[in-house]
């Protein structure tokens, strides 16, 4: 058993004690390690930020947890069917998407969730960097293996965006909006980004990775000055710290619900869930595409999720890719 697994087991024992003392002898019996080893694990948990009190003849007592995203902490509140079936945790990694790819290639089950407290090489679109300081945000990647055709896979972008928007609404009581097709905003500033990656044969999906980054308790000084789009965090928008653990549980729950709905009823209800947070219908926008910039009024989305614009010459333009900004 790894050191991390032992620490998680100790945390689980503390949770079962519900604030009562737990003797070192009991811990060493359950874990099958020496009392000295138990003491070392307790010291390591303390260094992670757990406040553990030790009283002679009574044992250890947990009376304060840092807001970490350890699997043992997440699992207690999860209540999901598929998403989070397996939870893989890193204190720090290169990129959760890259870890999820590696696990999926080795056969990780559908619903495997990779979470990291920090990313050294957080990925954005097309080689861009996702700023990932430790301990303040959520960086998660989810492995899915839906039995759909590869050309339907882009639909999952709307699914993860809707799940993120719902989780943020649930936790903050604020009204997030979605920027077509995938970013989630609060007061017009980006608080979450998605990077979904597909591994498919010509007609079969091997797996899909949903990458989700949410700025939760990031402070203003942690944002780089040269961001492409104005950004914020849930804490900056609400004015108070948000529990990362509860937000993570809320997100995985929403993903679980929407994914079950998608497999059962297809894309339509997912698109509807997404549209609950879309506020640009009827608005004038500017879309920068590869080919150039166009302006028009948003008519809505078609059944595939493409953006429909009414241009100045009254024609309707169907947009599949581009950066949308309200005018």
């Amino acid at each position: 058993m790894s050191q991390q697994a032992r620490q998680l087991q100790i945390l689980k024992l503390f949770q079962q004690q519900q604030g009562a003392y737990l003797s070192g002898a009991e811990i060493s019996r359950v874990l099958g390690v020496s009392r000295t080893a138990v003491w070392k694990h307790i010291e390591q948990l303390r260094s992670l930020g757990y406040r553990i009190e030790a009283v002679t003849a009574r044992g250890y007592r947990l009376h304060g947890s840092p807001d970490l995203l350890l699997p043992a902490e997440i699992r207690t509140e999860l209540e999901t069917e598929v998403i989070g079936r397996e939870l893989v945790y890193f204190a720090e990694t290169d990129s959760t998407n890259d870890r999820a790819h590696a696990l999926a290639r080795e056969g990780a089950v559908e619903g495997t969730v990779v979470i990291a407290e920090a990313q050294k090489a957080g990925k954005g679109r097309l080689g861009r960097h996702w700023v990932s300081p430790p301990g303040v945000n959520l960086y998660a990647s989810i492995v899915l293996r839906p039995s759909i055709a590869p050309r339907q896979a882009p639909q999952l972008t709307f699914l993860s965006a809707a799940a993120v928007a719902r989780a943020i609404a649930e936790m903050t009581r604020l009204r997030p909006t979605v920027k077509w097709p995938n970013d989630v905003l609060l007061s017009g500033r980006k608080v979450a980004g998605l990077l979904n990656e597909l591994d498919a044969e010509t007609e079969r999906i091997r797996y899909l990775v949903l990458g989700i980054g949410i700025n939760i308790n990031m402070t203003a000084d942690q944002f780089p000055a040269d961001l492409r789009y104005p950004a914020s965090s849930l804490a900056l928008e609400t004015g108070s710290t948000v529990s990362r653990r509860l937000l993570t549980c809320a997100l995985l729950r929403q993903l679980d619900k929407l994914y079950a709905l998608y497999l059962e009823q297809g894309f339509e209800p997912i698109l509807q869930a997404w549209q609950d947070y879309f506020d640009l219908t009827g608005q004038q926008v500017e879309v920068s595409e590869q080919a150039g910039i166009c302006r028009g009024r948003v008519l809505g989305l078609d059944g595939e999720g493409a953006l429909l614009l009414r241009l100045a010459d009254d024609s309707v333009k169907r947009i599949l890719a581009g950066d949308v900004r309200p005018l």
Binding site: A153, T157, L195, E197
Partner: peptide, 9 residues
């Protein structure tokens, strides 16, 4: 190939 921010290698 990118579609709806889904990257397909």
């Amino acid at each position: 190939i990118e579609a709806m921010k889904l990257m397909n290698e």
